[in-house]
Simulated assay, not measured.
Amino acid sequence: MIIELRGRGIVPGLAEGEALVSRETISGWGGIDPATGTVIERRHELFGVCFTGKVLVFPGAKGSSGWSGFFQSTRLLGTAPLAMVFTTLSTKSALGAVVTRVPAVSELDRDPVEIIQTGDHVTVDGRRGLVTVTTTGGDTPERFR
């Protein structure tokens, strides 16, 4: 099944790949290891999971303004996600997406954390503010309401 989500493009560009979804906000400073692209916040649901080369889908950023610096480091070290799709636009998440230089979309017409599942194939068009999801199974009508 294919579904389109429309929102606000934050960083232009086009990327597609496998989704990695978090229901929890992500901390940059102390929450990720930029050298490996891994979530290191011990109580986070993605603890130990690498986001490198994935479309990172999450509610938004938490923590200090250091968030953007840590995500910029992932770009410099080659460990950045392919794209970012986040529910809540904040200065931290917007600046983080800009310095990471990956396509990013936010403020979608439906909550991407509820619609997209880890493993789904996702195309992010940051210029048009469009996220296209090809689901991988377990599809129920409730998922797409």
Rank of each mutant, 00 (worst) to 15 (best):
134 T>H: 12
50 C>H: 06
106 S>G: 10
56 L>C: 05
133 V>F: 08
139 D>Y: 09
30 G>I: 00
141 P>L: 15
130 L>M: 02
49 V>Q: 14
33 D>I: 09
88 T>R: 11
108 L>N: 06
132 T>C: 08
115 I>P: 02
83 A>K: 05
61 A>Q: 03
114 E>F: 12
29 W>C: 06
9 G>K: 05
53 G>C: 12
136 T>V: 11
91 T>K: 02
84 M>R: 04
117 Q>E: 13
144 F>I: 10
9 G>V: 04
52 T>E: 13
102 V>E: 02
44 H>M: 12
73 S>L: 14
45 E>Y: 04
119 G>L: 12
131 V>D: 04
98 V>I: 14
121 H>E: 11
63 G>Q: 02
5 L>D: 05
2 I>D: 13
85 V>E: 01
117 Q>A: 14
19 A>W: 08
40 I>F: 04
98 V>A: 00
74 T>D: 14
114 E>N: 12
47 F>H: 14
41 E>M: 12
81 P>M: 12
116 I>C: 13
15 A>T: 03
26 I>W: 03
111 D>F: 04
73 S>P: 00
42 R>W: 04
116 I>N: 10
102 V>M: 10
44 H>N: 11
24 E>Y: 00
100 T>L: 06
7 G>H: 00
17 G>Y: 13
94 A>H: 07
126 G>V: 03
123 T>F: 02
110 R>G: 00
115 I>A: 05
54 K>M: 13
76 L>H: 11
25 T>S: 14
142 E>Q: 15
117 Q>I: 06
101 R>V: 15
114 E>V: 02
22 S>I: 15
62 K>Y: 01
52 T>N: 00
71 F>I: 02
6 R>V: 08
93 S>W: 08
5 L>Q: 01
68 S>R: 14
